[in-house]
Amino acid sequence: MDNVPLTLKKVLCIEDEHFISELYVRALTKAGYDVDVELDGVKGLEAAQSDKYDIILLDLMIPSLTGTEVLRALRDSGKTPKLHARIVITTNLEQREEVRQDIERQADGYIVKAEVTPRELVEFLSKLN
């Protein structure tokens, strides 16, 4: 897997659960991705808006700004004029169907963390191209 050529290489992982981000960084790095981690919404949004990343993994339950707020800001052309990254929601939160659909519409992927192992996450991201 190490030698798979990746078109989307730079990953931003916005995740406050340290052990989870650690696992993701480990698996993604092994697969050839370059991963940065941000622990809260404000810093995460700031990093995302720099438009350095190809993929953004966004947890919904994060401090300072919620994932939903970050997502909205990233999809708002007034606040984020330019963003080429694919946004994948990674959450363990469950919400009402309408809310989930609304989030899914704005994002490029939606993953329930407990349902995928890090390896499965890597597989999922490789299909994003």
């Binding site: 659960e17 052990f19 989870i20 696992l23 363990n92 963390k113 407990a114 192992t117 890090p118």
Partner: peptide, 8 residues
Amino acid sequence: TPLTLLRG
């Protein structure tokens, strides 16, 4: 959350 970690 712990399940995610456990499985990871």
